[in-house]
Amino acid sequence: MSVGLPPFQQLVDDHWRDVARLAASIAGPREGNDVAQEAWVRALAAYPTLAHARNLRSWLLTITARTAIDAQRATGRTAGRRADVDAAAPVAAPSAELPDEELWAGVAALPERQRLAVLLHYVGGLAHREVAVALATTPAASRRLVSDALASLRVALGDAFSPEVP
């Protein structure tokens, strides 16, 4: 209590969408909400034990990434992932969905640490220093994981792929 933690509801209000987006990007659109829900339950349980109130967003996104990986390991990595993406795609606007399906399939095919690094960096908006903490590695290694992931995505999605909006 002496560390001045804000009310947990403030974390939910400020960050629930970021957590849900990261969860969906790692676990797929269909599992995303379940993973986000589980991540919040874990965060709530651990919250009073935090030693300080700094980088709470980064802390939440790290929990989200770990929860997503745990969920995937629990169910086993299956070829069903891509099918899930298809099944969860909104019915409307089919033409707009195609590039996203390719993107998520490309992301799903990345090695686990590359996938986490690139999503924590580009979806979570974490700096390499924060990605490094989440993945228990160094900022230099985070940079390498992200650039390797982007190289793989370029191969999968075409040379023109760039994380920046075209």
């Binding site: 987006r21 590039p99 979806v123």
Partner: peptide, 28 residues
Amino acid sequence: MNRFDTALARLDATLHPPALPASDVAYA
């Protein structure tokens, strides 16, 4: 905004806030 954000923006309508269990303090 980046390529991932634009893809995720299309999922936004399906995302929802968590429903958390009863905890230490509840308010309304």
